[in-house]
Design a binder for these strands. Structure first.
Lengths: 106, 106
DNA sequence: TTGTTATTTGGCATAATAACCAAATATGTA
DNA sequence: TACATATTTGGTTATTATGCCAAATAACAA
């Protein structure tokens, strides 16, 4: 593998890694409906607001979301909505795993 | 968020996390062409064979690949090929990021 | 200015990952 | 049986990720 290829896989992995956390995945799905203010995330899950801010920062760094400051609030929205296309396949993986588990119990 | 929803996001994140490593992503892409023996991975990248085995184990645990032992060799193949559908979107994210970088330099 | 709200940032403790080496296991061959 | 090959597993260490708290910053209101 050339070093160029290596860099490409590292870049791709970074994008996936940004989504590969339950809270961030949830955030991305929430944003599929429309933009949200940081305060809305804070209201909906029970983690420290600084933690929420950092998760959003990871998504932003990866280029998945973008932010927009309006007054005291910061609004986030999906920049590349296709990331949610992943989900149907991820669910297919989970369904496949569940089926296999079920087979084992027969 | 209910605990059931939380479990679901954790399960989904686990699948994404399995792919969110440069080596494992590369492996998944290699497997899109067809099944491969562990020894073939060993020949193609410069990491310890035990490391390769562990990466394959992560992909297997996540339900993304399955293995098949034949003689001394173990062959891996994609179990849920749709995982590669991710890639076009990941590339779209990278392209978007690159474009933004370019804008900054103007 | 002072205070209040919204968000980010820095610091720290803890947990999870990753990579290597060595040892164990499994299979096939001499 | 003894040996070689292919792969997995266990152990160790270094790096990275996570989450909380406290402090800093920004915007607006009194």
């Amino acid at each position: 593998m050339t070093s160029k290829e290596k860099n490409l896989y590292e870049a791709k992995a970074k994008v996936l890694k940004a989504l590969a956390h339950p809270t961030r995945l949830w955030m991305a799905e929430q944003l599929s409906v429309g933009e949200m203010c940081v305060c809305e995330f804070v209201d909906q899950i029970d983690v420290d607001f600084s933690t929420i801010s950092k998760h959003l920062s990871v998504l932003k760094q990866a280029g998945i979301v973008e932010d927009d400051k309006r007054g005291k609030q910061v609004w986030y929205k999906l920049k590349v909505p296709c990331v949610l296309n992943f989900m149907s396949c991820v669910e297919a993986v989970l369904a496949s795993n569940a089926k296999e588990q079920a087979e084992l119990l027969k």
